[in-house]
């Protein structure tokens, strides 16, 4: 089955069109990356799918269902988003415990105490963080809370906007391993925005490359091994990322 399907998607803010003619399908269980220039519309595509950028035309389907233009609460149990900005996305006066147990409460799920505890451990946060507020956490600790919150409802599809770019490499490794394991065990589908091509290489099957509001190329992640890209923008992005000394190993 197709988990996410975009057909001729245009998204605007006011009079400015920021995404034009986006088309791609993400298969169920696939991990698909969205990379490209800063400001090219990557977050906007995720927001449109999640119902947070209402001014769009074209077609968006998730798990076979056509999406409307607003937030849909039943949709939340199947599809969750992790936002690029962990500061803005956590409520300043809710403790970590509240943030993680509320989705369970809203959807009438039990065994909350244990689930919260397990999820904190899964994202590498000690139990002493459970009753803290966002301002008492470091940047990376907040981002892990945001990821944990998205996972609480065991969604089938995850929209991940730069989920690990605020994290140091050791925590990033833990989160990426966790996401990979969940995908393997529960068949999750990921649509992940990242600017880090090595992360794509580790995590994803395919990637779409965006430049100035348009998708300029869709390529298998294996193209990162040999640089076999066709679009000039992708080639320049790849070349710039090739400065990574690890490549010479």
């Amino acid at each position: 089955m197709i988990a996410i399907s975009l057909k001729n998607l245009d998204v605007s803010y006011g009079t400015t069109k920021v995404v034009e003619g986006a088309n791609f399908d993400v298969a169920e269980g696939e991990s698909f990356a969205l990379v490209g220039e800063s400001g090219s519309g990557k977050s906007t595509i995720l927001k449109a799918i999640a119902g947070l950028a209402p001014d769009w035309t074209g077609e968006i389907s998730v798990l076979g269902e056509r999406r409307g233009h607003g937030v849909d609460h039943a949709f939340a149990t199947r599809c969750q988003m992790v936002f690029q900005d962990p500061y803005g996305s956590l409520h300043p006066r809710k403790s970590v415990d509240q943030v993680l147990s509320e989705p369970l409460k809203i959807h009438g799920l039990g065994n909350r105490d244990q689930r919260v505890e397990e999820m904190l451990a899964a994202v590498g946060l000690d139990r002493r963080f459970r009753y803290r507020y966002p301002h008492q956490l470091s940047g990376g600790q907040r981002q892990r809370v945001a990821i944990a919150r998205a996972l609480m409802l065991e969604p089938k599809v995850m929209l991940l906007d730069e989920p690990t770019s605020a994290l140091d490499v050791s925590v990033q490794a833990e989160i990426l391993n966790l996401l990979k394991k969940l995908r393997r065990e529960q068949g999750l589908t990921y649509l992940m925005v990242t600017h880090n091509l090595p992360v794509v290489s580790f995590m994803c099957d395919r990637m779409a490359v965006m430049n100035k509001g348009r998708i300029v190329e869709i390529a298998p992640a294996s193209a990162l091994h040999d640089g076999s890209f066709s679009d000039p923008y992708t080639q320049s992005l790849y070349a710039a990322s090739g400065g990574n000394p690890d490549r010479k190993d």
């Binding site: 490499v169 050791s170 290489s201 580790f202």
Partner: peptide, 19 residues
């Protein structure tokens, strides 16, 4: 440990080492 946890462009590891 930090250096080993960095993903690589030509990544072939199934899992990244953690601290």
């Amino acid at each position: 440990g930090l250096l080993a946890a960095v993903p690589r462009m030509e990544e072939t590891r199934d899992e990244l080492p953690v601290l």
